Amino acid sequence: MLRRGLFEVRARLTTNDVHEAAAALARRALRLPELAQARTVAAYVSVGNEPGTLALLDTLRARGVRVLLPVLLPDNDLDWGTYAGPDSLVRVRHGGRMALLEPAGEPLGPEAVGQADAVLLPGVAVDARGMRLGRGGGSYDRVLARLERAQSDPALVVLLYDTEVVERVPEEPHDRPVHAVVTPSGVRRFREPSRGREQP
């Protein structure tokens, strides 16, 4: 019910609301040390009224950061490809769901996310403990489990609207908290990565 209510609020946002929030999100996210120091960032292309990511992706790429984007597999797991600018994206419809923008290049394999210094996660809400409520497909639960198996601890950052930081979200045993949430009005931190990748 919480997810449905938050989706309904997003559906009422105007195009101008979404653009203004995307610009503010990019400015705030780009100031994060986790992104400023990252060599590889796993991210996603926002769709519909999701908090916008394209401006952020383009700025990261312009800085020389390698940006990985997901490719949805038939079993809802994620493969990854390299972002090479807006022209490198193709619109892919998966069944009856909303079409996604995915990288057109050679897939790198599901394990490629383990190369990321930071992972930008889509979500619908995050709570005061840093627990994330996802979109409901389970794709990123698999990503987070894969990172844990690989003993990788990239910075996990969720991009949301201000109203989507809530007191508590439902939690499953496999859920793990994120490190930070970025909204148009600020950044809230929950925990530090237990180990970072060494910088050259």
Rank of each mutant, 00 (worst) to 15 (best):
G85H: 07
D79M: 04
V92K: 12
L68V: 09
G196F: 01
R31D: 14
A38Y: 00
L89R: 01
L57C: 08
A116F: 08
V92N: 01
A43F: 01
Q151R: 15
S46E: 11
S152P: 00
M98S: 11
E106I: 09
L144R: 02
G85D: 09
P177V: 00
L13Q: 14
L69R: 02
P107Q: 12
E164S: 08
P70L: 07
P70C: 09
V67M: 10
R191K: 15
Q199H: 15
A23R: 14
D162L: 07
P51W: 05
D141T: 04
G196V: 13
T53E: 06
V113T: 01
D127S: 13
D58Y: 00
P173E: 07
V182W: 01
V126N: 08
G138R: 02
V165W: 04
R63L: 09
A155K: 07
A55G: 15
D79Q: 07
R195N: 12
R189Q: 13
Q37W: 12
A84V: 04
R31H: 10
P70Q: 07
G81E: 11
T15H: 14
R4T: 15
H174D: 10
L25V: 10
R28L: 13
A29F: 03
Q115W: 10
R129M: 14
Q115M: 11
D58V: 11
D79W: 01
V90C: 02
H179N: 11
R176A: 03
P70Y: 02
G105E: 07
V113P: 01
G136A: 06
D162Y: 05
L72W: 04
P33D: 13
R188P: 12
V113K: 02
A155D: 08
V47W: 02
S194E: 15
L147G: 05
A118R: 01
P184A: 08
L32W: 06
S152G: 08
R189S: 14
S185Y: 05
R93Y: 00
P170F: 01
P33A: 12
Q199W: 14
G81F: 02
R176Y: 00
R63W: 11
A26I: 01
V143A: 03
V113I: 07
E172H: 10
E172W: 05
R63I: 09
P86M: 11
V182F: 02
T53I: 05
R146N: 08
N49I: 00
G196Q: 14
P154T: 05
H174C: 04
V90I: 12
L68T: 06
G96C: 00
H94Y: 13
G81Q: 09
V166W: 08
Y161P: 05
V166N: 10
A104Q: 13
V158Q: 03
L160C: 04
L72F: 06
M98A: 13
G138S: 08
R135P: 00
P154W: 01
L100N: 09
V166R: 08
R12W: 04
R142D: 05
T14M: 09
A55V: 02
T183E: 03
R63H: 12
R3G: 09
A125F: 09
D162F: 04
G52F: 03
D153S: 14
V165F: 02
E106R: 14
L144Y: 00
G123R: 11
L121Q: 05
R149A: 15
D75W: 03
